[in-house]
Structures are given as C-alpha cells and as structure tokens.
Amino acid sequence: MPRRREAVVPEFEPRSDALLEVQELRKWFPVTGGVFGRQVGNVKAVDGVNFFIRPGETLGLVGESGCGKTTTGRVILRLIEPTEGRVYFEGRNVFDLNREEMRRLRRQMQIIFQDPYSSLNPRMTVGDIVGEALEIHGVARGREKGNRVQDLLEVVGLNPQHARRYPHEFSGGQRQRIGVARALALNPKLIICDEPVSALDVSIQSQILNLLEDLQSEFKLTYLFIAHNLSVVKHISDRVGVMYLGQVVELCQSDELFANPLHPYTEALMSAIPLPDPEYRQERIILEGDVPSPMHPPMGCHFHTRCRYVMPICREVEPAFIDVGEEHFAACHLRKTRQKQ
C-alpha cells in the first residue's frame, strides 16, 4: 500500500542563517533473511528527518532507544552513507562532496562519543589520541603538535603533563575530557555530542556539561547534542527536537517545549520522567506497550498505536512536520496551532 503523506516536502534552498540543515534525511538498513540471504525488508532507522542549527546554537535531539537519533548524527558526518536526503553544511550539500572535499570538511565537524571506555584506543597515549588529527590533516607535527596537545588538555581541565599516559590510567570523566580535547583539536565549527554524559556518574556528569558550555562560549562552537535524558537535554539546549521511530515529531525552543509540549509523544515522555522531588506529584501518562518495530512502522502517524488522542485520520495519513507558530514545529493532526484544544 502506498504511503499517504499529508504533504510532500519539495527540495528547497538551504536556509542562509543555518550552519547545518538536514532535509528529508533517510537511512534504511537492509535486513536479509532466508537461506539465500535475500533482502526481506528495511529497518527504517531514520525516516524523513528535518531540522536546522544556527551558528553558535545548541540543538538537542532526544528520544528513546531505537528512535534513530544516533544514526542521524552519524549520517550527518557521513560515517554512515544516507539512503536519501540532503545535509547542508554552510550551504553546501555534504553528500555531493568527493572524498577529498569530505576529508577537508571533517575538520569543521567533529564528534564526541558516548562510551569513554571504548572510544579511545587503549594502545595510544593521550597525546597521540588528541594529536592524531593534527598530524593527519597536516596542521601541526613534532614539537608544535606537542604544544598544541598540551594546550588542548589544559583547556578541557586535564593536566598537560599527562599527555604521555594511556587511557586506562584515567577515570570515566577524565576520559570523556580526552574525547572532548580530541574533538576540539582541529578547531571545528560543529561538534556532534552523542550521549556524552550517559555513561557518567551524576557528580561527573555536571562537570562535563559545564565544560561543554564553557567551551561553546570560548570557541563559538555549535552543538548537536544527542541524548535520551530529557533533563540533561533541556539544560544544555537552546532548541530541542523530539524523535520517535525515525522521525522528528516536535521541535522548538527548549523552554517552550517544556512549557507547552504539543505532540502527544512529547507530553507522555515528559510526564514519564521521575522528578527528584518526593513532594511533587504530576499526572503521569503511561504509554501502553512498546515502540513498534522500525522494520514495520505503523501506517499514518508512527505514534498512533500508542496515542491517547488517536483519530481516524492518524491511522491513514502521515502528518506533516509544520511550523505551528514561532518556530514551534510539530507533526500531529490534532495539534496544528500552539493552542491546545
């Protein structure tokens, strides 16, 4: 059955005020099966994502496991090739670039990974880890590289004398600082932070969040901050996008999202968070069941199987992701204005 969508988004010019713009991004992973290993379907990890980030801004992407937030980050960097869609970085479509052009662009776009244990090579010293990119991109070598590495370590709050140590000699929080130093090495404009604090203890988490904020104002960085923890995302982001089953279902200013969530999934997600205040009792919307398989996302609105406001149209027509006013985007048939019924 062909997919019915409320509106097909035509290819449009990238916004001039955006550092990064993602249009209709899709990444489907083929699933093979049977004795002949034929393709039996697709996991639609990212299925039509649209957003943009202005220079110096932090955009948060939040969602539960399997919603496609990590894949989105990796496709933007072309660590995974997209199935469809466009990603503009400073007005140029990243997917049109050849190898060499892409390599040069990577200096502008860096990533910090979730797990500070597996994302650092245990056989390399901290100095080599942080300095590797400087050498590869021909920015600095020898003593100059050494000096730059020491500066970077100092910037992220590590002892510059520790450049000769190995990752196992550091705690989780310190390792994440090494990952941050590595991302900063080439003076990038954009850093994709993929769950940078989820593996850390609460007391260490706040140290890293503050560090990221300091670095942003010092180096005019732009962040795409991907995480599952809404409180963390709200804290660090100027604007937040909420993802569900491969799509951004709502996106707006951080404060607006929490004061006036429009999409029923955002509403449920926020009410599900246990707040650290035993005297505060909120109405909790318990979503029934689990997230459907991304191999067979529901027809119409992907969320309709768990939505408490579901209407007949939701089962058939996929809602368009539209601006309902003041850059508050939502994809919901029920909520087409900022005023709730």
Partner: peptide, 15 residues
C-alpha cells in the same frame, strides 16, 4: 548537580 526539568537553566553545581 542534577539538571532539573522545571527549573530555569543556569550553571550546574559541581562536585
């Protein structure tokens, strides 16, 4: 040191 959903953004306390 935990970010709060219902409080204005500000610098986090650090241990």
């Amino acid at each position: 040191s935990i970010p709060r959903l219902h409080r204005p953004r500000g610098r986090l306390h650090v241990i």
